[in-house]
Amino acid sequence: MNHIIEVRNLKKYFDINSRMGMVQHQVKAVDGVSFSVAEGETLGLVGESGCGKSTTGRLILRLIKPTSGEIFLEGRDINSIKDKELRSIRKDIQIVFQNPYSALDPRMTVTDILSEPLSIHKIVHKYEYGKEVKRLLGLVGLSEQDGKKFPHEFSGGQRQRIGIARAMATRPKFIICDEPVSALDVSVQSQILNLLGDLQKEMKVSYLFIAHGLNVIRHVSDKVGVMYLGKIVEMGIVDEVFEKPIHPYTKALLSSAPVPDPFRSMHLEVLEGEIPSPVNPPSGCAFHPRCRHMLAICKEKRPFLQHISLNHKVACHLADIAFEGGRASYA
């Protein structure tokens, strides 16, 4: 398979300094994450706030520098390249932000916003900016006249279309969609999700889709990674993870999402307790203080992500016991 992006054992630790400027604590925001995304594929990352999903996206774009680990863009190691050369990868990797209100410069017209990446990355000749901007506007369903307007003249959904057009301007291979519909109204969400889907089919672009809305993740993703306190606890083909979740955290997450069906009997697996602080994560399996099925080993030993089927991996001691033996064939 042709991987556009491959990430191996990616880590980002943030230092928290005391008043004296000494390193006091480390927040392990991303702690050993590995995955790959193929051409035209969407990997969904889901998890609660503070689980490290947005940090993962920012690391791939090199908006922040990883503590350790490797990131490959079409086989080329982009983690070790110098800051000066970053421009060459940003043409291929773009991002769509959550809040379309703060992601656009209020003093630039839409034409200026869309021309900037064209000139920085020398996508087309200067004389063709006008034509290219028109093409981009059409791509995301805006009219040519909209190019003359400023961001404040648009609604949230339209602004997100501008954000998407800007990301598409450099003709990227990989787009990080960081909660692109979370700030939008329900009736506008589906328009934007459809637009992202259409563009993917047309341009063969790959997405890393970060969201906390489980139904959104289910809809857009081919593969999904469930994150908890900086680690991926379950990963696999989206249908398999949603229909046969193995990790107790994934199960709890899926059952706590409210379902718009009043005829369904509620089978709530309410999670006890709060998300622990990533400054001081629990020992062993980070989920053990909230887990109903905790074993003695869970407090002591960290479980690793292991295959339970060809396209499904879980980091849980319970799964280790249940699927023992059946695993060797996938190793």
């Binding site: 609604s155 959904g157 339209q158 109204d185 329900v186 009736s187 506008v188 969400q189 589906s190 328009q191 999700l193 459809n194 889907g197 489980l214 139904n215 959104v216 289910r218 809809h219 989206v238 249908d239 949603f242 899926l254 999402a257 379902v259 718009p260």
Partner: peptide
């Protein structure tokens, strides 16, 4: 329209139904 445009948790569709346009000012 509101009910049709929410992505479902238990089934996948190719395209979501959408309400066209935006909430007017």
């Amino acid at each position: 329209g509101l009910m049709a445009c929410i992505p479902k948790m238990d089934a996948r569709v190719d395209r979501l139904q959408a309400i066209p346009g935006y909430v007017p000012h």
